[in-house]
């Protein structure tokens, strides 16, 4: 029983991390039709920014609570700024050429991720976190690290915030309309480019935050940190349906749980089950669980 509780909570925390990465990917694709391979680099940079912040404030090996909280903020900002810079500086010239956009995000992802190896060392580093976060709480006999709970709470807050943003704000309205028909949004006198930058920055912010939390979850970071998780985030996005935030949340939960429970039995079963799930979803619902028919 306690094993099941532990696996469930850990799986949900993993799901939360995937969701933070996938939500931005899905929004960006929904609005701009860009498959953003640089997203993993934003995630990596979030992790490194958080680590750097903590190292500046409380040293490389231990983290105070204020340092950790500040690290979350810095990671979010770094993700947002990087993403906005990439969108304005590099993607904008390529709007008429979608394949080149995909390619350039690939190159950016490669260079940005490796830049962390250039600035800091390429090898893995331990990610310090406050004692209370690394400690475990006992839930129905299962000893669960506290950072799992924090990650789940953060993802729930982000999900709620995004749904509010999409449903209740004018920019949310623009994003939803733009995902349906970009040109018509322009023809209503709205500067779509600004919405693109905003969505990119938002996605980058979530990826940055996800990177910081992911670092706490795994306890260590390296330059390939983002690209490894990006692949699972892609799977989450496809299973959830491109452009659907709720779909991403749902799919993240399915994937996170499947992976955790699978990996409990053998080291590889979890990852394998995830790809199997993808194949099944594609056969039954090619547009994902909550995807619109295109």
């Amino acid at each position: 029983m306690s094993t099941i509780i532990l696996l469930t909570l850990t799986g949900l925390a993993l799901a939360a991390m995937y969701f933070l990465l996938a939500a931005g990917l899905s929004l960006i694709f929904g609005l701009m039709d860009v498959l953003n391979f640089a997203h993993g680099a934003f995630f990596t940079w979030g992790a490194y920014a958080a680590w750097w912040t903590i190292a500046q404030i409380s040293g490389e090996f231990r983290a105070s609570t204020p340092a950790f909280l500040l690290a979350l903020v810095v990671a979010t900002i770094v993700g947002a700024v990087l993403a906005a810079a990439v969108e304005v500086g590099l993607l904008r010239p390529l709007y008429q050429r979608p394949i080149y956009q995909v390619l350039i995000t690939l190159g950016i992802g490669l260079a940005l991720s490796q830049l962390t190896a250039v600035i800091w060392r390429p090898d893995a580093r331990t990610f310090p976190q406050p004692r209370w976060l690394a400690d475990t709480s006992t839930v129905l006999g299962a000893r669960v690290p506290n950072n799992r709970f924090l990650l789940i709470l953060a993802a729930l807050a982000v999900l709620a915030g995004m749904l509010l943003f999409l449903r209740k704000t004018r920019y949310g309205l623009i994003v939803r309309a733009g995902a349906e028909n970009r040109e018509m949004v322009q023809a209503l006198g709205i500067d779509v480019d600004r919405a693109f930058t905003l969505v990119f920055a938002l996605g980058g912010a979530l990826a940055g935050l996800g990177g910081a939390f992911g670092a706490a979850y795994f306890g260590s970071i390296d330059p390939q940190f983002g690209s490894v998780n990006l692949i699972f985030a892609f799977i989450v996005v496809v299973i959830g349906g491109l452009g659907s935030v709720t779909g991403s949340a749902l799919a993240a939960v399915v994937i996170g749980l499947a992976q955790q429970f699978g990996n409990y039995y053998t080291t590889w079963a979890g990852d394998f089950v995830v790809v199997l799930l993808l194949a099944v979803v594609l056969l039954v619902r090619p547009n994902g669980l909550l995807g619109r028919l295109r």
Partner: peptide, 10 residues
């Protein structure tokens, strides 16, 4: 190579 990639595409 990442940088070269970006420059080539652009």
């Amino acid at each position: 190579f990442g940088i070269i990639f970006v420059l080539l595409v652009l």
